[in-house]
Amino acid sequence: MAKTPAGFVCTEVETKAAKKYSKQYGQTIVITNDFVKMMNPALLDALKVLNKRQRDLAKWGKKEKDDFKDIMGVDGDAYIDDVFYICDMKNKNTYSPSEVETITVVEFMRKAVDRMYNIMSQLHVDANPVEVSLPDPCIPELAPVPDKKVYKYGNFVNRTFTSQYSAFVERTATWTCSPEQYKDGLEIHIGYNFCKKNPMGADSRASTLCHEVSHFYRVEPKGATWASEEDKIKSRGPWGGVGTDDLPNDQDYKQSKGSSGKNIY
């Protein structure tokens, strides 16, 4: 067994797991200035991507329709059911998947991209980091972290000490944050693989941020009243994201390999 600086005792199994993790996934953490320099343009690029999608979905000509069907594999005029959560912001963590909105795919995408843009526009990078967590001494992340601490720069948590993922979010954060609280309440955790991506394009830093923002659950406030059903429909948003899932699921994707041996996420 091994003792940590705080005196916490790890089992032999836990110590071996940490060493194995360090060998497989460990990286040198990206220092403050470089992390900030990376995230500022990445955030701006992600906003540009979402704004372009907003314009395409608003124009919705033949080219946009054909491109949409080619990319999404479904006609924009098809109908889908969108389940979302009703949250009681006065009683945190009180929610229920109690409403379903039947909507065309294109309208769903318009509203989804609008919500994603609203979230992204609230995010910011702060050059002055704050400590957000002290990893458990026995978890696999311990070994690669030089000072055993994790820091947040605005909304972005620097976890570039690990190459196990590009980024992740706690998708339930929108259950307890209203839109005006996104600037302080939402976090995107950035791993080392994010650093190796191109700024723009497929599987880029910009697309990764858009992907992560889409994970936040779509919600609506409990008890909201509208003058009419039409007003209610128009007022939906900008609460939450889209509630997308990873394939395969979030618990398994990090370790899932294809026939080539590469991660299939």
Rank of each mutant, 00 (worst) to 15 (best):
S178Q: 15
T176P: 04
G223E: 07
C195N: 15
E229F: 13
G185I: 05
E212S: 01
N198R: 06
K222Q: 14
T174N: 02
I233L: 15
I188Q: 05
E229P: 02
I190C: 08
P179Y: 04
K183A: 07
E180R: 12
E230V: 05
V219D: 07
M200E: 15
V213M: 03
P199I: 10
L209R: 02
A227D: 13
N198V: 09
D231E: 13
N198C: 14
E220A: 14
K222T: 11
W226N: 06
I188F: 05
Y182T: 02
S214V: 02
G185W: 05
K196G: 03
A224Y: 02
D231I: 03
F216I: 01
S204L: 01
N198A: 14
I188Y: 07
C210V: 06
I190L: 02
S204K: 00
L186I: 03
G191K: 00
A173V: 02
E187K: 07
S207G: 02
G201F: 01
K234C: 05
V213P: 00
G201S: 05
P179V: 00
R205N: 01
P221Y: 06
P221G: 12
A227K: 06
Y182N: 06
E187A: 08
E180T: 11
M200I: 13
K197V: 10
S214Y: 00
T208N: 12
K183V: 05
D184C: 07
S228Y: 03
E229Y: 09
Y192F: 01
H215C: 14
D203K: 04
P179N: 06
K232A: 13
V219G: 00
S207V: 09
L209F: 05
E212D: 06
L186C: 10
K197G: 09
A227H: 02
F216V: 08
K222M: 14
C195P: 13
H211N: 10
K222N: 14
R218L: 03
Q181K: 11
S214C: 07
E229I: 13
C177T: 02
T176M: 05
S178R: 10
G185C: 04
Q181R: 12
P199V: 10
S178V: 11
K234N: 08
T225D: 12
E230P: 07
K232G: 12
E212K: 00
E230D: 15
S228L: 09
S204E: 07
F216E: 04
D231Q: 08
W175R: 15
K197R: 11
A173I: 08
K183M: 13
G223Y: 01
